[in-house]
């Protein structure tokens, strides 16, 4: 199962422990996490489900390219990191 981990900076606002979840894409994996932690969703995603402008998601160390539908593929042993972009100040 892919593992999803969140930036420590987010923990100040909402607890987001790392989770191992089912999912073949970033969207599926994040949906699985947010199903059990709905408050966290609004800190990471816009209302329409796109990644917030000043958030970054990495899959196995590489930034995702699809920031809107989050369709980047994730392997079964993949690592997803949800980080705070430094852009935006």
């Amino acid at each position: 199962m892919p593992r999803v981990a969140f930036t420590p900076n987010l923990q100040r606002h909402v607890a987001c422990p790392p989770r191992d979840v089912e999912g073949a894409t970033v969207r599926e994996a994040l949906d699985a996490v947010f199903a059990g932690n709905p408050k966290a969703r609004g800190y990471v995603l816009e209302d329409d489900g796109a990644l917030r402008k000043h958030m970054n998601v990495f899959v196995d160390g590489r930034p995702v390219r699809d920031r809107v539908t989050l369709g980047d593929a994730v392997s079964p042993g993949g690592e997803i990191y949800v980080m705070q972009a430094l852009s935006g100040g």
Partner: peptide, 8 residues
């Protein structure tokens, strides 16, 4: 490269 304090 990425933005730091700005979008670019």
């Amino acid at each position: 490269w990425m933005g730091g304090g700005a979008d670019w």
